[in-house]
């Protein structure tokens, strides 16, 4: 296990702990946002985004490059039809099941074994996208 993988593992531990703390490991909590009963998901995403904003936009002013090497580069993607069509399909599945990729992994961690079939389906859906539309 090299240093980079250790960092990613620790980052993952933190991410999963935070998801569980914020309740998003439960599809029911995600659904309560999409059913417009509890707007907590906006607070969680907002708090996570503001913190990450500091790391991406402010920290590089004081630290020249990542401490283990590599480079600081904001995450950019080109906007095209697939970005939006994909987001529509993702949204429909998200609202149907209350699962997204990260929350499904954390859900497994709180003992929610049925989510394994959801994760398997996500692999299958990703495979179908790459196989037939990639």
């Amino acid at each position: 296990m090299n240093n980079r993988n250790i960092v990613l593992f620790i980052g993952g531990l933190t991410f999963g702990f935070g998801l569980a703390w914020g309740g998003m490991s439960k599809p029911e909590v995600v659904l309560s946002f999409l059913q417009l009963k509890d707007y907590g998901l906006v607070l969680l995403m907002g708090a996570a985004t503001v913190t990450t904003f500091v790391a991406i936009n402010i920290v590089p002013r004081f630290v020249k490059e990542p401490l283990l090497g590599g480079e600081f580069k904001p995450r950019t993607r080109t906007l095209n039809r697939n970005t939006i069509i994909g987001a529509i399909i993702f949204g429909l599945g998200w609202g149907l099941s209350g699962q997204c990729p990260g929350s499904a992994l954390a859900s497994l961690g709180i003992g929610n074994l049925p989510v394994l079939i959801g994760i398997a389906a996500m692999f299958a859906g990703s495979y179908a996208m790459g196989r037939f539309f990639g």
């Binding site: 994909g86 998200w94 099941s97 699962q99 994760i119 389906a121 859906g125 790459g130």
Partner: peptide, 11 residues
């Protein structure tokens, strides 16, 4: 939902 999430997030 998982199928749609897997497909849509990749697209």
């Amino acid at each position: 939902g998982g199928l749609l999430v897997g497909f849509g997030t990749r697209l």
